[in-house]
Structures are given as structure tokens and as C-alpha cells.
Design a protein around this nucleic acid. Structure first.
Lengths: 302, 302
DNA sequence: TTCTGTCATAAAATTATATTATAATCCTGA
DNA sequence: TCAGGATTATAATATAATTTTATGACAGAA
């Protein structure tokens, strides 16, 4: 004995509406014996008869009446599944979980959320802030759809899409305003304040100074750019911050901002996602949005 | 492109629970390629991907998560349809619509309903009272499941099951008690009170008297046995009533009841149903119940 | 690199479904 | 009561869908 199939339910539905095998078969675009057999199979599968067959006319049995209601319900659910699929592939709707590193999130977020709200009103964007390593893990095992980080991350499982590059600027105490900008080598002699371990921005700053690790220092590393700037303002040293952080972080601090001459330090911001994600095309679209949001900070306004 | 099938949903369900093609295939008792292909077909049919395929592990896509919930819902509905079918065929439950003619209903009903309540507590018995011709029509077009009438009805579309036979008795005014019982021929000379046209009992009574139609009479025909007996009690004539009506109808009337010598008039009570009804076996069962209910009235206690 | 686990693909075999042709049934009307 | 028409069932055959077997492709681990 075979299983119940949707085909059987569809034929049964047609039969119940037309009360006539041949006409129902025509509606289903099959021949009458095909429909007859499927109905019989359905009856076999259910172990009970659905149709009272008279020569002149047929009618549903008691249970048939009940069954056809159920069958139609089932068919409707199946159709809705198809509709849901269509809706989900055509439109970028639902939830998008984006990770961002702490040296990007506070600065990019306002503009990004505004643009996302305009462009994809149906989309719920959730932001999670964490260090690159954690974000990578979360993207890889599906807890995030994508992350916005500094490139490269170089993981074979991830696609990287570069969005824009931004320069780092030197933040010095307010009174240093106008004094010559030190070269990257000179920076090493200054008291360079840095983020704590794990932030890629720390490594990028160090790399600019030509060092890749640092001997233990007397002062504690900061956990945010905000703190760093406040430390500079308090005269504890100098620091680097990315372009996008300038306006937010230096607004209420007595610090001066200076740009480097070549070689100018910079980082490339990009988005990463699983190579296998089916959201890929959506994410490419979305990355464009992020690119637009980051444009004001972008090197050479690009 | 093919249609969505339940098989695909079942495989998808298994795949979503095991997150592993081969194991899911094993659970479904098919080989892995079979399952892979059905999943692919499902994705094609939906026009969207459900599974993110990684070499090491797979996971559901966003839409896949939604789809599997829907799929399981659908599968549950289908299973329930099967269960409902099983329930409906094993047990005699639900609604049973029985028609009865007016010369049976009031007398058989109390006992029948009591017995039915004992034997099939799950069964809702609905009674409709009408003349034989109407009942036959209603049985034939499915508004009734069966009817209890006097046989024969001789319709090729209907099955007749004889249940019991009962005699007719003569009802005379109380003062006739003890006087000789007239023969059927003599009855013709008496003022025989009858039910109105359409009642089979009228025809049966006439037939007993050897006449098949009656010239217009001065008196009106009665619409119930009850009225007939009251008319007899009022001295308007005599009448015949069936055995089962005696105790109810003569209780509160000053009439005398007399039985005929051979040939004794009688009628056969039976049940009729559509030859094509799937309730046939249930109705045979039920007819047994009716037989039991009618036993006390039965000719020779049979 | 090679091995291993995993899913995809291709060809062949099997099974399910459809079609065509015809039978059976039963109602209709002479 | 008998022929004719309408309707569904059945049988044989044809077609299509599904499964299996065998193999490929790919990525991650040793």
C-alpha cells in the first residue's frame, strides 16, 4: 500500500468540487482513469471510502466530507509554503544579523541604520558588537549573517567584500595643535596609547609604527577609542584613531587632530559572510549600503 | 519543474532534524542520493534554497527554518487525516440520520433510542419523520443515512433489510368489547376510519379489506393513529392500528382492541439504505438494534 | 600530499502514474 | 424489457518519476 500524496489530495479536491470523475479529471488535466486510480489509492491509503459511487452521480461519504475539508486545508498550507518561498527570495525581508567591531560600530551605525531603514523598510537589522575573531566564529557557524570588520580576515570559509578605506589620524593633546606631525618612526618614541589586546585596530596602529608586539607597559590599554581620546585629552599620551571616529570622539575633548604625510596609515573596512550563505546576493546589495554609509570617511572621498 | 510532494517534505523534515543527508536518508529508509535529489527538487519547486551545504556540516537557511516548521505542520495534518480515517472506519461514531414513518416513529422511538444510547454511546442518532415516499427520496439523495419503513419499497437504488412483522388489530368503541371480530370482508361495511392519503398504513389497511382505492367519503381522514383512536373512542367508527401502537394509543381511550383470525393483517417493518452507502456494515449492525427494539411487537414474538 | 567524510551527479533499474481502449453498471426511454 | 447513453472501473501499455548503484567532487584532517 502506498502513501498519501498531495496529488491524490488535489484530485480528491477537484472531484469533491465537481462531483464527477470525468470533469474533475479534465480540470486536473489528466484522463479519467488516472484520477479514478488516484482516488482509489487515496481510499486505500486511508483505509476507508471517500466517495459513494453511483452510476448516475457520485457523492462524498460522511468521512469524505470531513476529509475534503482537511485536504483543502493541507493544500492551502502547501501553497502558502510556496508563496512564502517566493516572498522570501524576491524581497530582502526578515532579520539580518550583522556583527561589527567596536572601532566601527559606534561611528558607522547611525548612518547605516538610517540608510537601511530607507532602503529596506521590511528588514530588521540586528547589530552585534565584538572583536573580529569572535565575529568570524559567529559568522562561520551561522549566528551572524555577516560582519563588518577590517580586512583582511583570510578565512577560506568566508567571502570578503572590501567597502572602503579610511585613514588613521593622530590625536594629540590640544596644545600640540600646529606642531609638526611626527613620522611613523617618531611615533615609537612618543607615548602611544592603544586599545587592549584583540582589537585589530591596535595591531594596525602598531604595524604603522613598524612594531608588531609591544613590551609590557606601565599604563593600561584602553577598551575604547573614546577612552583613548579622553586619555590623550588628559595629557597621558597620543593615539591614533580612524577617520570615522574623529567627529564623535574629538567633539568634547581638548585634543588636536593631525593627518600624516605619506605613508598614511589606513585600514580597509569590509564585510564578510559565509561563502555558502544563500543570502549572498542580498549581502552584496547590503554591502553597497554600508559602502555608502562609509563614504564620508573614505580615503580620497572614494 | 515538478510540484511539491509530501515525500519531499518528509525527507526535508528528516534532514532538518538530523542535519545530515546520509543519516536522514537512512532514517527515511532510502539512499542518500534519493534524498539529495528530492531536497533539490523541493528547493527547485520553491525557487529558493533551504539548505546551506558545507562539506563538513549543513545548516538550514533562514527560509529553510521557516519552511521546516511549515512542512512539519503539513505532515502532521496529513497524519491526522489518516488517523481520522482510521477512527471513522473502526468505530461507529458520528451522526446517523434515520428516517421513520409516522406510524412507526412514536412507538419504536423510545426503546430504540435507549438501546442505541447503550450500544453506541458515541453515536448521535437523528430522527426525521415523514411519509415513505419522502423518506425514500431523502435516503436516495443522501439527506438520510437510512429509513425505517414498511416493506417493500422496491427501489433498485435501495437495500431493504426486513426487521420484523407485526399484526394489525381492530380498534372498536369500548362497548363493542367481546362482540365477534368481523372478517376482512365485513370490515368494508363498517365505517372504517383511515389515515390520510400517502400513509402506507392506509394502503395496507385497505388492502386487507380487499379494496385498493376508496370513493370519497363524508368523513375526513385522520393524520395520525392517535387521532384515529380518539375518533373511534368518540363512536365515529372503527379502525386498524399496528401492534406497536396499541399500548400508547389505547391507554387513555375507551376503545376495545380485537385481533383478527386468519388471515391476519400485518406489515413488515424494515430498514432501507442506499446500496452504495459505505455505512452499509454499520447499518446492518444498527438494523439489528432496531429489530431488538421491535421484538415485543413482533408477530409470534419472533 | 593523501585520506576521509560528505554531498552531488550519472546511468540503469525500478516503481508509480498516465493513457488508450474496453468493460461493467445502471439509468432512460421506447 | 431491451437498446442506448452516460459514467466509472479495469487492463494493457506507455511514460514519467524515483530509487539505486556507482562514481565524482570537494573540503578538511592527518
Amino acid at each position: 500500500m502506498t502513501e498519501i500524496s498531495l496529488r491524490q489530495l488535489r484530485y480528491f479536491d477537484a472531484l469533491a468540487t465537481h462531483n464527477h470523475f470525468s470533469r474533475a479529471a479534465a480540470v486536473c488535466a489528466v484522463t479519467q482513469p488516472a484520477l479514478s486510480m488516484q482516488i482509489k489509492e487515496l481510499e486505500d491509503a486511508l483505509g476507508t471510502s471517500l466517495i459513494e459511487r453511483g452510476t448516475r452521480q457520485i457523492r462524498l461519504t460522511r468521512f469524505g466530507e470531513h476529509a475534503v475539508r482537511r485536504a483543502r486545508e493541507i493544500l492551502r498550507f502547501v501553497d502558502e509554503l510556496g508563496e512564502a518561498a517566493r516572498a522570501s527570495r524576491d524581497e530582502f525581508v526578515g532579520r539580518l544579523r550583522i556583527g561589527m567591531i567596536p572601532t566601527i560600530a559606534p561611528y558607522l551605525l547611525p548612518k547605516l541604520m538610517k540608510e537601511a531603514g530607507n532602503r529596506y523598510p521590511q528588514l530588521e537589522v540586528r547589530i552585534r558588537e565584538a572583536l573580529t575573531s569572535k565575529l568570524m566564529l559567529e559568522v562561520m557557524d551561522g549566528r551572524l549573517d555577516a560582519a563588518i570588520v577590517a580586512l583582511p580576515v583570510s578565512s577560506p570559509a568566508l567571502t570578503e567584500a572590501a567597502l572602503f578605506s579610511e585613514e588613521f589620524v593622530l590625536v594629540r593633546p590640544g596644545e600640540d595643535e600646529g606642531t609638526p606631525v611626527p613620522s611613523s618612526e617618531k611615533l615609537r618614541e612618543l607615548r602611544l596609547l592603544l586599545l587592549e589586546e584583540g582589537h585589530c585596530f591596535r595591531d594596525q596602529a602598531l604595524s604603522f609604527c613598524g612594531v608588531h608586539s609591544l613590551p609590557p607597559r606601565e599604563i593600561l590599554d584602553a577598551s575604547s577609542l573614546s577612552t583613548l581620546v579622553q586619555m590623550v585629552s588628559a595629557g597621558m599620551g597620543v593615539t591614533l584613531i580612524p577617520e570615522m571616529a574623529i567627529s564623535v570622539e574629538t567633539r568634547s575633548a581638548s585634543v588636536s587632530v593631525a593627518r600624516f604625510k605619506d605613508p598614511r596609515p589606513s585600514r580597509t573596512i569590509g564585510m564578510i559572510w559565509r561563502k555558502t550563505t544563500p543570502l549572498a546576493s542580498h549581502l552584496v546589495q547590503f554591502s553597497d549600503l554600508v559602502r555608502r554609509a562609509g563614504k564620508p570617511f573614505s580615503k580620497r572621498g572614494r
